[in-house]
Simulated scan of single mutants.
Amino acid sequence: MKFSVVKAYMLKEFTELFRSKLIIMVYLLPSMIMLLFGYGIRMDVTHARTLIIDNDHSHFSRMLTAKFEHSKYFNAKVTQMSEAEALHRIKQAKADIIVIIPASFEKRILYGQHSEIGVFVDGAFPNRGMTMESYVQGVILDTAQSVGGSLGRQSGMISINSRNLFNQAMRDADAIVPGLMGLVLLVAPAILSALMIVKEKERGTIFNFYASPLGRGEFLAAKLIPGFLLHSLNIFILFLWATELFDVPFRGSFMLYWFAAEIYILISLSIGMLISVITRQQIVAVVLTIIITIIPGFLYSGILMPISSMAGESYIEAHLFPVMYFNHIIYDCFLSGTGLASAKTVEYLGILIIYATLLLVLGSTLLKKELK
């Protein structure tokens, strides 16, 4: 490899990046995605609009009502409206939950009889509806434990002492922000590298490469190294956003995080390079890159849905994209801290290295030094 020639091409690429203002996108786009989605995506449900129809007006019914009123997950309001009117409120999107306490609630409990509490949940959005339903069940179960304990029954003698590992406070930022880093480092480098070769095709300057003695490997190295060096800085910028701005803990090895992120950036650049090789227009390259990176970055990264809960074709597709493997390492570095002691982390790191190697070889093979 002629390093002097590669160096000259690299200087040309850096000059083009500064001249075309693409250098701004290199650092602005990742930070914008991190900030917008980091603050915008929320899996938790708080202040759900709750209507409580208390038909009993007893001590136990008020105890249950107080549990809802003193929880941040509910914006509870006790009302005497009819059941039909309350359901109409949900249809009008003015309420999220309806809790109906029967008239004989306390009497049945005192006599040890079975009592039912009516609960209606807005299930227009299934995930949100299931979350609100679990919150309601938790409040009712907690109240049942308290009532059983006050009556000296066995149900009050059983308590659940649970602890949440890795994300003790159940913060959305701890679950979302590390996954967003996998999305950011997949999208931004790929878009940049997707423009590297195709823009020369549009301008006609690609003929300089066709006529020069520069090899395909040297040409690709000159194209990828500037983007690789520039986006390597984003590894540290995103780390600072996560730890300082979003207060996400970091419990693992920084060297593992840095090495995995560098390999992942190389994968992202290689994806954009492949798209740049097979396309002839910049707009086509950008659109194709966005489709290939953003959609899998959300669906198969584990941010919104655990990979273990997928089945069939979706489970197979998740394992075809590198974002799943990288995000596993990122979550380990930030939340778990197991590092290379985990066999799966070592396996996924090896898969990323193989992925990068195959993409680079494939790009070098598809790049033809000739006019089609």
Rank of each mutant, 00 (worst) to 15 (best):
F68S: 07
M43I: 08
T50H: 01
L151T: 12
V147Y: 04
Q113N: 07
L110K: 15
I53R: 01
H47W: 06
A144Q: 07
T79Y: 07
H114N: 13
S71E: 09
F120S: 15
V99R: 01
H57R: 14
V78L: 12
I90P: 00
F68H: 06
Q137A: 09
H70M: 13
I98L: 10
F37G: 00
Q92L: 13
S71N: 12
S61Q: 01
M43R: 11
L36D: 01
I100G: 00
I33A: 00
N75G: 13
M63F: 12
N55D: 09
D56F: 02
S134I: 05
A48R: 03
V121T: 15
I109F: 00
I90D: 03
Q113R: 11
S134K: 14
M132Y: 02
G123W: 15
G40P: 02
A95R: 00
Q113M: 07
F60A: 06
A84I: 14
F120H: 15
G38M: 04
A84E: 15
S31A: 11
L35Y: 03
F120D: 14
R89C: 10
E83D: 14
F60Y: 13
P126L: 14
I52R: 00
S104D: 12
P126G: 05
D56R: 03
V99L: 09
E69S: 11
Q92E: 11
S82K: 10
E85L: 07
V136S: 00
A66N: 15
T131R: 10
K91E: 12
M43C: 06
A48N: 01
F68G: 03
G38W: 00
S104F: 11
S155F: 12
D142F: 05
Q145V: 05
L110P: 01
V78Y: 03
R42S: 06
V119T: 14
A86Q: 01
F105C: 04
V119Q: 07
G156S: 05
S82C: 06
A124I: 13
H57M: 11
F60R: 02
K72P: 11
F60I: 11
S71W: 08
I117M: 08
A103T: 06
I53P: 01
S146C: 08
Q80M: 07
I33G: 00
L35A: 06
N75Y: 13
Q113I: 04
K107Q: 07
E133Q: 12
S104V: 08
N127S: 05
E69D: 09
E83H: 13
L64M: 14
L51Q: 01
Y39L: 09
A66G: 14
I53A: 03
L51M: 09
T65G: 15
F105A: 02
L36S: 04
G148T: 04
S104I: 09
F125P: 13
G152N: 05
H70I: 11
V121P: 03
Y39S: 06
A86K: 01
I140C: 02
D142I: 02
E83F: 13
G138P: 01
Q92M: 11
S61E: 03
I98C: 03
Y135V: 00
A48M: 02
V119L: 13
L151S: 09
Q145M: 06
